[in-house]
């Protein structure tokens, strides 16, 4: 459902979209059913001259069935939704595939900074590559990100990845993503962070391995200059 509005670029985007579609089908069924019955009853039982309303307490067993059975069906649907939701959640947020690359993401008023390991392959060394408001990643590579905030809450959100995670000052939160298509997409801040909250646009550039390595080399060269 969501893919009609926005591309699926990460590996788990389809899982999340499928979950949303499943919920849409289940809730859509109930929604249509209840609204049809509801509107139908309004039409069917409009006041007619000489016809008195029926006296139904709803307390007897055969009457209660009319709400009891749907109620149990709702419970079944709920269980299906919970199972679906937890499965997706565990995959996306709770467990993480092993990292091929690691990137540090720092939110501050009002910009995103990205720190990638330089040629030595380690974070927090002198040759780290730092960029602002532009994140370059390789396609088909599992990235772990370490999310931090300098001042207030921010939220790192990449709609095409279906990824979102709040950044909290004082904490390091780890997450992962794996892009499956090249391209350039938006990063939004999804947690109000002050006056410039709407002015915090960043871009994520997903490149092929060759392009990415070329970019890394250029950045490293810039840094040493």
């Amino acid at each position: 459902m969501i893919e009609h509005y926005i591309e699926q670029v990460s590996t788990y985007a389809a899982d999340i979209d499928n979950l949303i579609t499943m919920i849409a089908v289940i809730t859509g069924f109930w929604f249509v059913l209840v609204e049809v019955v509801f509107l139908g009853l309004i039409v069917a039982y409009r006041k007619k001259p000489g016809v008195k309303a029926q006296y139904i307490t709803g307390e007897e067993k055969h009457q209660k069935r009319w709400i009891g059975i749907p109620h149990e069906l709702v419970l079944l649907c709920d269980i299906a939704v919970i199972i679906g939701a937890v499965r997706v959640w565990v995959d996306v947020k709770q467990t993480m595939p092993p990292a091929q690359e690691t990137v540090r993401i720092i939110g501050q008023q009002w910009a995103w900074s990205f720190v990638q390991p330089g040629p030595d392959g380690k974070l927090d060394t002198a040759d780290d590559i730092k960029t602002v408001d532009e994140l370059h990643v390789k396609v088909d590579t599992t990235y772990h990100f370490k999310l931090e905030a300098r001042d207030v809450l921010h939220s790192f959100s990449v709609p095409v990845f279906r990824l979102k995670q709040d950044a909290i000052p004082g904490r390091v939160i780890t997450g992962w993503f794996r892009a499956k298509k090249t391209g350039t997409h938006d990063i939004q801040c999804a947690e109000i962070c002050g006056i410039g909250h709407g002015l915090m646009p960043a871009r994520i550039v997903i490149e092929s391995a060759g392009e990415h390595n070329a970019w890394m080399a250029a950045q490293a060269a810039l840094a040493t200059k």
Binding site: K93, Q94, M96, P169, G170, R171, V172, I173, T174, G175
Partner: peptide
């Protein structure tokens, strides 16, 4: 906790 750490604390 799982995937997070309160470094400041």
């Amino acid at each position: 906790g799982r995937n997070w750490e309160n470094v400041a604390a």
